[in-house]
Design a protein around this nucleic acid. Structure first.
Lengths: 227, 227
DNA sequence: TTGATGGGTTATGCATACATATCGCCACCT
DNA sequence: AGGTGGCGATATGTATGCATAACCCATCAA
């Protein structure tokens, strides 16, 4: 394992967790000091993050955690909807019976979190549910595209599932997809996943628009109240 | 412009052109000597290429131009079909009349290359045609995903359009998509693009399978005869 | 008071030196 | 004769030094 990889992963974690927020500077020196490495691996970690889109580099001006505009957010959601629907259709035709049973178990476990409006627990369940579908698609490349897109949206996307109403609806929509899996209905499974992602996406797009607006009005501090 | 960026772009060009072939080593020292830079930007270029999937790095063992297995090729084609269809459906609903006219002009210009079975000229036309659709989708993120996927497949994909029969069929299929654009029929445009990419994809998958097979039998040299 | 200008500061970008793991080769042992 | 172990060579990974461009702020003029 290279030092640059560990630095990269730790930054990714900090962005996911919200410790690093869109617009925050990611500079070589502070990274090298925090992780006790020289500037070289710190710099390489930043470049890797830039390649995956998590940070944006300007020559001679350093890197900042990528801020997503409302337009970009809509574009990414549009793409994610398509990718998730495709993965779901592939999975609908390829999931083995025991994998569908596994999905049902996980879905049953998620009900408690959904009822309790426990967004932390629900997000953990949500990840497991979707991840099983990616694997079930038998398409590692497609799964990678989806994971990368979701990773880039985490800061904003996280927030959409903190809305209590959304959690309950999300769980119901998962159930609808699962029913289509049991029926082996590829087209219906795809459509239901498309609707599911779109539902979350609407919340997400609104949030990004709100953040963008707040950022324009009152500077970065203003986003605090929403995250 | 950073030195690492120019090095990266030149390597990308060499991979696209076939000067660098899957399995070829890409080492820091030779890059730094060829492009008259130090090892640092050469190394950074390699890491950027690795992030986009064009080369594969093994810790302490250097980088090689990514070799695509038959399974990976199928996965990438499956994904590309979905992405291109999505971009086409978006474009069908968003292209302005003058953009459709531009597409028609380009398509008309491509007829000559198609008739002459001039695969070089046809590939140039082909890129322009598809590129206009990506732009017409009004989704820069989706367009980026498609370009990245196509870039990763260039070495193999190039070859599919060198088949004379495929060139003629490809041009006809473009015409069918264009007709759907004129009719403003989103679903039909998407379906026709899906079929179009799939047609090329079949040739492509066969080719990768052949290369993989050849590689297993006779080592890397064996792929020479196909490229 | 506001704007422009210039110098100092600092972080990035590149070059280079050093550390270390991997690989190939050869001798030696079985 | 074939396999194994160690040694040398080489390339990667890391650290550090140097050059330069961008930023900040003070100073000055309108």
């Amino acid at each position: 394992m290279r030092a640059s990889d560990t630095v990269r992963m730790r930054i990714e974690t900090e962005i996911q967790s919200g410790a690093l927020r869109p617009g925050d500077a990611v500079d070589e020196r502070s990274l090298s000091e925090r992780f006790h490495v020289s500037r070289t691996p710190a710099r390489e970690a930043i470049m890797q993050l830039a390649a995956s889109g998590l940070v944006r580099m300007s020559p001679r001006r350093g890197a900042v955690v990528t801020e997503i505009s409302a337009e970009e957010a809509i574009n990414m959601m549009e793409s994610l909807v398509s990718l998730e629907a495709e993965a779901t259709m592939l999975a609908a035709g390829r999931l083995r019976d025991d994998e569908i049973e596994e999905l049902e178990r996980i879905h049953a476990e998620g009900e408690e979190a959904a009822r309790a409006r426990d967004s932390g627990a629900y997000m953990a369940y949500n990840s497991r549910f979707h991840e099983l579908i990616y694997v079930g698609s038998r398409n590692a490349y497609l799964a990678g595209l989806i994971r990368q897109a979701r990773l880039r949206m985490t800061f904003y996307h996280r927030s959409s599932l903190t809305q209590a109403a959304r959690v309950a609806a999300s769980w119901e929509e998962h159930g609808a997809v699962l029913a289509a899996f049991r029926d082996g209905d590829v087209a219906v499974a795809g459509k239901r996943m498309r609707d599911h992602i779109l539902s979350g996406g609407r919340v997400y797009a609104d949030l990004v628009a709100a953040l963008t607006e707040a950022g324009r009005e009152g500077g970065a501090e203003r986003t605090e109240q929403v995250g």
